[in-house]
Amino acid sequence: MKWADVIADKSLRNLPYKIELDRYGNILMSPAGNRRGRLQVRIASLLERSLGNEAISECSIDTPEGVKVADAAWCSPEFLHRHGYETPYPSAPEICVEIRSPSHSEEETRFKVGLYFEQGAKEVWIVLETGSVRFCGPEGERSESIFRVDPRPELRHGRQER
Rank of each mutant, 00 (worst) to 15 (best):
L128E: 13
S105N: 04
R110D: 05
K112D: 07
S145V: 14
H104K: 15
F135P: 11
P93E: 10
V127W: 02
I126M: 05
S91G: 08
P102V: 11
G120V: 15
G120T: 15
P102F: 05
G114C: 07
P151G: 06
G114Q: 03
S103F: 04
Q119S: 11
E94M: 04
R134S: 13
G114T: 07
V97M: 04
R100I: 02
W125I: 15
R148P: 00
V133C: 12
D150L: 09
A92G: 03
W125K: 05
V133R: 00
C96P: 02
G140F: 07
I95Y: 02
G120S: 09
R110W: 12
T109W: 02
Q119K: 15
R142P: 12
D150I: 07
E98C: 04
I146T: 11
V113S: 03
E123R: 02
S91D: 12
W125A: 07
S132K: 03
T130D: 12
V124I: 15
E98P: 10
E144I: 05
R148G: 07
L115I: 12
C96Q: 10
I126E: 06
S132L: 01
P138D: 01
G114A: 01
G120W: 14
F147A: 12
E118I: 12
R148L: 13
W125C: 10
C96H: 04
R134W: 04
R148D: 07
C136R: 13
P151S: 01
Q119D: 01
R100Y: 00
V113W: 06
E94F: 07
Y116H: 06
G131F: 06
W125F: 09
E129Y: 01
I126F: 02
T109H: 06
G120N: 07
L128Y: 07
F117V: 13
S105C: 05
E118K: 12
E107K: 15
E98F: 12
T109K: 09
C136K: 10
C136E: 15
I95P: 00
Y116L: 13
K112R: 14
P102E: 05
G140W: 03
G131M: 02
V149D: 04
F135K: 02
F117A: 11
E129T: 06
C136Q: 11
E108D: 10
Q119E: 12
S145L: 08
G120F: 14
F147E: 08
G137K: 12
I99G: 06
E123F: 08
S101M: 09
E139G: 10
E107P: 01
E98W: 09
S103C: 07
E129R: 05
I99V: 13
Q119T: 06
D150A: 11
C96A: 14
G140K: 15
T130Q: 00
E139H: 09
E106C: 03
I146V: 11
C96D: 11
L128N: 10
K112G: 12
